[in-house]
Simulated scan of single mutants.
Amino acid sequence: MKTPEPLRTHVPDQGLHLSRIRAITLDLDDTLWPIWPTIERAERVLQDWLDTHAPATAALGRDRNTLREARNQMVTMRPDLALDMSGLRRESIRWLLQRAGEDPALAEPAFEVFFAERHRVELFEDALPALEYLASRFPVVALSNGNADVHRVGIGAHFHASLHAGGFGVGKPDVRIFHAAAEAAGVAPHEVLHIGDDAHLDGVGALNAGMQLAWLNRAGHPWEHAPLVPHLTVGDLHALCRALEG
């Protein structure tokens, strides 16, 4: 199969400076796997578990208005968890258990059921070959606002380090987490190529941090953040690897 060419948007790319790249930072959700099918499946598994172990809570969990109320309550009651996706999910479950009059201690095993399924991701077909290629050439640092653990996913061997917004204290597009990722790789920010799908969180964040940006634009969206411009726009990770070969 022919490798797709780099994808063009209405804003021309800057072009990669290949000789400057000494490390890679890499987004996870929607870059290496589609996130929403994973979350929806994990929520179904959690609901099944609650049906057995906390049926009153399970009944509440089927009401979208109650779920929305739980999320809103967490935003108000636990602003310290704003970046902690695991903490927010666990405490939302605990709030539902308390609301239903069931044991709030069940929040811990319930969350673990959800979290285990959340890590049963289905990688995009280009993800593993790209990871193997990138890791053979550069230190690769995972950089995510989510809560996926690359080791639990089963791809940890390809990563030099992993940073998450919840653990670091700020998330993308804040330049501090990008700079921390560069430091974890042992290089300066301008020596990093960041790869990610989100034009704002990944794109604007990396460019403002002084990194080169490879924007993974699988759906062909227009770039809407001029005068900032990606160094490279690709439709898949095969095209990215081809571009890095020079």
Rank of each mutant, 00 (worst) to 15 (best):
H190G: 02
I24D: 10
L50I: 01
L240Q: 07
S86G: 05
V234F: 02
L123R: 06
R71L: 05
H238Q: 10
S136F: 01
V113F: 11
H231G: 01
R64Q: 14
L83T: 04
P79K: 02
F111S: 08
L216Q: 04
P227R: 03
V113S: 07
G146A: 12
E224L: 15
H190Y: 08
E40I: 01
L216K: 04
R120P: 06
G87E: 12
D51N: 11
L134I: 06
N72W: 00
P55V: 02
L46T: 11
V170W: 11
I155D: 05
L193F: 09
E5W: 00
P109F: 13
W223N: 02
P37F: 07
I195Q: 02
L67R: 15
V113G: 10
T52H: 13
G186F: 05
R94G: 08
N65Q: 14
A148C: 03
I195C: 03
L81H: 03
N208W: 00
D63K: 06
A199G: 01
A185R: 06
D84N: 15
I155G: 02
Q212L: 11
D198K: 01
L193E: 11
R41Q: 14
R62N: 01
L123A: 07
H17F: 02
D149E: 06
H231L: 04
E191D: 15
T52M: 03
E69H: 13
R78V: 01
D51A: 10
K2Q: 13
R90S: 04
S136N: 01
A182P: 10
D126S: 09
R176E: 15
A157K: 15
S86Q: 13
V175Q: 13
H225C: 02
E91C: 00
A161Y: 01
A184Y: 08
N145G: 08
A209R: 07
N145T: 12
G205Q: 09
F168V: 08
A226V: 13
L28Y: 12
F159K: 05
L232Y: 08
A188G: 09
E117N: 06
A58Q: 00
A226H: 12
L18F: 08
D198H: 15
V170I: 15
L81T: 03
L81R: 04
N72P: 00
L16Y: 03
K2M: 14
G186P: 11
P104Y: 05
A148N: 10
G205T: 12
L46G: 03
G61W: 15
H17T: 08
N145Q: 11
R71N: 05
P34C: 04
P230Q: 04
A148D: 03
L244N: 09
H238C: 01
V234W: 05
L81Q: 10
M77T: 14
H151K: 13
P34Y: 04
S162F: 05
A181T: 08
R71Q: 10
H158V: 01
T9Q: 07
V113P: 12
G203D: 04
V153E: 07
E125S: 15
P189T: 07
L26Q: 08
E91A: 09
M77L: 15
H200D: 08
G61M: 09
G166S: 10
A182N: 11
G167F: 00
R99C: 00
H190N: 14
H151L: 00
I195D: 06
P55C: 06
D202Y: 07
I21P: 13
Q14A: 06
